[in-house]
Write a protein that binds this DNA or RNA. Structure first.
Lengths: 342, 342
DNA sequence: CTCCGTAATCGAAGCGCTTCGACAAGACAG
DNA sequence: CTGTCTTGTCGAAGCGCTTCGATTACGGAG
């Protein structure tokens, strides 16, 4: 039924004149083998282009060498970040000799049950976990080693990794304050986003508002504070963005610093500011929270606090690997955001 | 070493009081089984939550139930399209009871050799195939059933699927002509893109220029033609876009229709047109080639010819499944673009 | 009433790998 | 020189599944 039978461990063993088990031990390093024999085996492996049959290996060793990565491929979620994450995860997984099975979030808990039961994967990375996420319960029940990106309501006993959004908000405020702004504001995502994932957007907001001085002394020990800071939600569409910015400027005439946590809105914000006669980079400062490209693609280029998606992926995969090896990992990991000044 | 041993086919067999082989036949349908027995088996499967061990299955049947999808995860390539493609591919694969292994293009030919040799996948989908692509040779050599997205220089014996870019260019021209534009232009990607993938960008251009009348009769049989049409490349950065548009308008004062085949440039094009006093939608028409969001996120919303990524994915996966079943598929499939008017 | 074809089921033989216990051959202490 | 460890290697027993005869039971044809 299948064409060329493929080179098996027996072929390698024959070629190196050893037993199949010896080949296995050379490859896995689980028993000591004399250097001479090991070399002969490695040569045979190279000459024959041997790669162990994944199925046979998983059957015998109860380790598939594959991890599943469940992404919210359909919507929401910022795309570049997702891609960077996916890319980083695959690269990191390969470094650990693992492959990555891609699943969409809409396979849901049943999908997780399936891959777990069929032993097709050894572990799981769950992206974009929401506060009330049905998949979380499934993960708990299945007992499959996993790492979540995002924090569910009850994270006890789970390994979670996420960007430190509070710190991101704070960094934006600090950047603006450092530029001399006394009155600053945060332009957030649409209301809908705030409802969907408690945490995420709110944490940015609270970090940002942390730096609100409200008349308190702006000097002395501790971080410098803004005299005044506000946060307003904002829909994605061009017209609403323009309106929101216009209203914001009208209601706060002394505003000189704006943090934008709403990727698609950025170009329109710039437009609106220009219309209002603000000269970004001189009498007005803007910082965006989002991937680098967003800040790069407008004129003038904007500094940005980005989600270090690749780092997140590395950390997540790294933690998962450690769990697979039975090692301990921290339950909760917050990754520092990175501010890129342009 | 592993916790709960998992439910096996033997457990199901015991529960249903049949032989393991009978369970296998019920599940695969490869031999006829009496309805009564089949029912008992199905019940047992459901009650125990049985899922066959993927490794064992692949070992015994020489079919892994997994296909590999190699994406250029690092750069280039338009992101939303990629995501839609990935999403569509996974969904379609699941419909055929297959899982998807995600690989990055930088694993290259060696990665293909590895997955092929380890029988971890049954087939391959290669995204974003370029004219001279080292992976193509590997695919040929390995003889692994595969489907390519894009056309390599020598596509003989391979199954290739792609958007009909020539038709996309033509459709843009036709749309503008239909709007009454007599002098139209195509704003393309940066020179670099044209060099990287012969085909792709060029085909759009040639389709577009197909509708150039150059003084020929604009009436009569056949498609209506524009009196004049031009194509200019354009870099991505805001400043260059502005300059390019300005120069274009200056050199062609009668220009009233523009097709933009350069996603990041779109907002800046709109800006430049506004600066030049053009009123898009009334005295000037713009159509973009790219995913819907691009057209939606500017003001006014623009019609767009999009890459039907999801369809491409379905077709690619569908073809691959057919190949896995030993059926015939066309060597070359061109997918019609879709024009969305707003 | 026998013979044969068909339908339904079973048992056993692998698939290619890992892993466990055995075992031969030295190394070394007594 | 005998007994005890190591070290390096082998053989065999599965892992859970599919698949290929073989086997039984049952009708209908002769």
């Amino acid at each position: 039924m299948k064409g060329p039978r493929g080179v098996t461990i027996a072929d390698v063993a024959a070629r190196a004149e050893v037993a199949a088990s010896t080949v296995s031990y050379v490859l896995s390093g689980k028993r000591s083998i004399s250097p001479a024999t090991a070399q002969r085996v490695m040569d045979a492996v190279a000459e024959l282009g041997y790669h162990p049959h994944a199925g046979a290996r998983s059957l015998a060793s109860r380790r598939a060498g594959v991890i599943a990565m469940m992404l919210p491929l359909r919507d929401g979620m910022h795309l570049p970040v997702l891609m960077q994450f996916a890319s980083g995860a695959v690269t990191e997984a390969r470094r650990h000799d693992q492959d990555v099975l891609l699943m969409t979030a809409d396979e849901g808990p049943a999908g997780l049950a399936r891959v777990a039961a069929s032993s097709i994967v050894d572990g799981l990375i769950l992206m974009d976990v929401e506060v009330r996420d049905p998949r979380v319960e499934a993960v708990r029940r299945l007992g499959l080693p996993s790492v979540l990106l995002g924090f569910p309501a009850d994270a006890a006993g789970l390994t979670c990794v996420d960007l430190d959004f509070t710190a991101a908000g704070r960094e934006c405020a600090d950047y603006l304050i450092g530029r001399g702004c006394r009155d600053i504001a945060l332009l957030g995502a649409s209301e809908a986003v705030y409802e969907r994932r408690t945490g995420f957007a709110e944490r940015v907001r609270s970090g940002f508002l942390d730096r609100r001085g409200d008349g308190r002394a702006a000097a002395g020990p501790g971080p410098r504070l803004a005299e005044s800071a506000a946060a307003v939600p904002c829909p994605d569409d061009p017209v609403s963005v323009q309106r929101t910015v216009k209203e914001l400027l009208a209601s706060r005439p002394d505003l000189t610093g704006l943090a934008v946590h709403n990727e698609p809105a950025v170009p329109h914000v710039m437009h609106a500011l220009a219309d209002a006669g603000k000269c970004v980079g001189e009498d007005f400062h803007v910082v965006v929270i989002g991937p680098d490209e967003v800040g790069e693609r407008v004129h003038p280029p904007l500094p940005s606090v980005l989600v270090p998606a690749e780092r997140l992926a590395e950390i997540a995969v790294g933690h998962l690997m450690r769990k697979l090896d039975g090692l301990e990992v921290p339950e909760s990991t917050l990754v520092e955001p990175q501010l890129t000044v342009r």
